[in-house]
Computed example of a mutant assay.
Amino acid sequence: MKAWEKPLQPASSNVIENRIIQAVLSAEISPGERLGEKDLGEIFGVSRTLVREAMMRLSSRGIVAVSPRRGWFVVEPTAEEARETIEARRSIEVGLLMTRKSISTDAIDHLETHVLEQQRAIDEDDLGRRSYLLGHFHVHLATALGSSIIANFLEELTTRTVLIAALYQSRADAQKSCDNHRRLVHALRENDVEGAVKIMDDHFTHLNKALKTRSRLQRT
C-alpha cells in the first residue's frame, strides 16, 4: 500500500480530491496512472458516487481525465500542452515583475530559503519534492510581489507543472531552474528590476528548449 492509500475515514469528496492532488505533487501518483472508482471507494470507505464527485472536480482542474475503456486516469500533458503552459506562465510572470510593487526584505529572505529547499531536494534526488518546490516557487514569488490573484492562479497550475516536470524535466533541467530562481531572488534583493525580468524571460526560454529536447529524445 502506498502512503497516500492509507485509509482515512470518514472521508469526504474534498478529502479525496486533496489526497490525490498531494499524491500527484509528491510523485506518488504518476502521469497516466489509472484511478479506479471502486478501488478509491474502498481506500476511503465511501461510495463510488462520492469518488466520482472528487474526480469530476479534479477533471475540471485538468489533473485527471476519463475515457470509456480506461476510466479515470491522471493526465499526461503532451509536449504541445506543456509548451502552452510555459508560454502562459511567461506572459503572466514576466508582466508581474515588470509592474511589481515593492518587495520586503522578509519576503526575499523567504524566497532564498525556498531556493535552498529546492537545492536540497535536487541533491537528495527527491523527484517529487524537487518538482513540487520548483513549481511552487513561482506561487511564493507572486505572493511576495503582492498579487494574491496571480498566486492563486499559479497555484492551480502547479499540479499541472509537476506533471510536466515528471514527464519532461531531467535532473540537469531541474538544477538549471533552481539556479535561475537563485539569480532571480538576488536581482530582486539588489532592486534590479530589468535584470529580474531578463532572468525570468530566459528561464522560460530554457524551459521551452529543454521541453523540445526531452520530447525529441522520447520519440527516438
Score class of each variant (00 low, 15 high):
M1I: 10
A3K: 12
L8W: 06
Q9L: 13
P10Y: 13
A11F: 09
S13T: 11
N14G: 05
I16F: 01
E17P: 00
Q22I: 01
A23R: 00
L25H: 08
L25P: 02
S30R: 15
P31V: 14
P31D: 14
G32Q: 02
E33C: 05
E33G: 03
G36A: 02
E37C: 04
E37P: 00
K38D: 08
D39S: 07
G41Q: 06
E42T: 13
I43S: 02
F44V: 05
G45L: 04
V46N: 08
S47I: 00
S47E: 02
R48I: 04
T49K: 09
R52Q: 08
R52A: 05
R52W: 01
M56L: 15
M56G: 07
L58T: 08
S59D: 09
S59C: 09
R61L: 14
R61S: 09
G62Q: 10
G62P: 06
I63S: 00
I63A: 00
P68R: 15
R70M: 05
A79Q: 08
A79D: 13
A79C: 09
R83D: 05
E84W: 03
T85F: 05
E87V: 10
A88N: 13
A88C: 06
A88H: 03
R90T: 10
R90P: 05
S91V: 11
S91E: 12
L97Q: 09
M98S: 12
T99N: 10
T99V: 11
R100P: 00
K101S: 13
I103G: 00
D109Y: 06
H110G: 04
L111K: 07
E112C: 07
V115C: 04
V115I: 13
L116M: 08
Q119W: 14
A121H: 04
I122D: 00
I122P: 00
D123F: 02
D125N: 05
D125T: 04
G128P: 01
R129Q: 10
R130D: 03
R130G: 02
S131F: 00
L134V: 12
H136N: 15
H136W: 13
V139K: 03
A142W: 01
A144G: 13
A144K: 15
L145P: 03
L145E: 02
S147M: 10
I150N: 14
F153V: 08
E156H: 06
E156P: 02
T161N: 03
T161C: 03
V162H: 02
L163M: 12
A165T: 05
A166W: 01
A166Y: 07
L167R: 15
S170H: 01
R171G: 03
K176T: 00
C178G: 09
D179G: 01
R182S: 11
R183N: 08
R183M: 13
V185S: 01
V185Q: 00
A187T: 09
A187M: 13
A187H: 07
R189G: 15
D192Q: 07
D192H: 05
V193P: 01
V193M: 11
G195P: 11
G195W: 06
K198V: 14
K198T: 14
M200F: 09
D202A: 11
F204M: 02
L207R: 05
N208M: 10
N208V: 10
A210I: 02
K212Q: 12
T213Y: 11
T213I: 15
S215N: 13
R216T: 14
L217A: 06
L217M: 09
